[in-house]
Design a protein around this nucleic acid. Structure first.
Lengths: 138, 138
DNA sequence: GTAATGTGTTTGATTACTCAAACATTGAGC
DNA sequence: GCTCAATGTTTGAGTAATCAAACACATTAC
């Protein structure tokens, strides 16, 4: 079997396994891994605010998926809807104080789990791996 | 942000993107990426046959997910159900001739797409990356 | 200005999964 | 041989995401 194909399959398998495990860990904070990624994207953006379509790309969902994901998150106050005066089509999403709080807590357990998941790798290897993934366009 | 946490997120992002793209490519053959992975697991196993629970682990699904995934595949003749005389609880799944055919065709387009997805990496890097992922337990 | 086209978001219908509980069968201990 | 716990699979109910179509607003060209 072609090594690049094998690589792609391997990558996928690894990620499937880890995201399932992370999902379980994060459920302690009442959020899914996908929701964490939303908070992460928002927390890491300029004003903690992003257009929904931009968010969709960052968390690898369709715009439709983003809408459905954000609805409950907004309802429980993790994110809030803003509007862009310049263009009434775009609907901006911002991280709310409660969201930042959860994000902080969830990040701690995520880091914990990431340590476990990568404990077979040395510091050097983590760096190398990260570099290679970046080269792949992540 | 902690490098290992970043790594885990990066890994996940990359895999989400690629699997969506692969899913689309494989739809030409009428199967999903998950279904491909089932065929792959079966084709690569001893007699082309595996117990459902073993299959579940290999494709990173719950046993329940496997049942629901295989039902339609069996109906269209990609896989077939066998039974294990030694233990009537286990339900063996085997790849069927039509399944091998599709697997072969789908593998070709998967390889094609894998080339595209990894074209930024040299041969050496592919090998290194694969090694690092293996070290992670893939 | 108004029509036509393009862009961003939401909705309706469907599919793919998950969890927890039910089933079916096996193997151990008595 | 009969319970009882353990193992493998399926089912019922619910969640998460998808696609395609609808919607809302913007922009361009006339």
């Amino acid at each position: 079997m072609d090594p690049r194909t094998a690589l792609v399959l391997q990558l996928n398998q690894l990620s499937s396994r880890s995201s399932r495990s992370l999902d379980h860990s994060l459920s302690l904070h009442g959020i899914s891994f996908t929701e964490y990624r939303v908070l992460h994207a928002l927390a890491g953006s300029a004003q903690g605010v992003l257009p929904r379509s931009e968010l969709a790309e960052r968390v690898c969902l369709t715009p439709s998926g983003v809408t459905r994901l954000l609805n409950p998150m907004e309802k429980i106050g993790l994110v809030e809807k803003h509007s862009q005066p310049r263009d009434a089509r775009v609907s901006l999403v911002g991280i709310a104080p409660a969201g930042r709080e959860i994000y902080k807590d969830a990040s701690a357990t995520l880091t914990q789990r990431s340590m476990d998941l990568t404990h077979t790798l040395g510091e050097r290897q983590v760096k190398d791996l990260s570099g290679l993934l970046s080269a792949l366009g992540a």
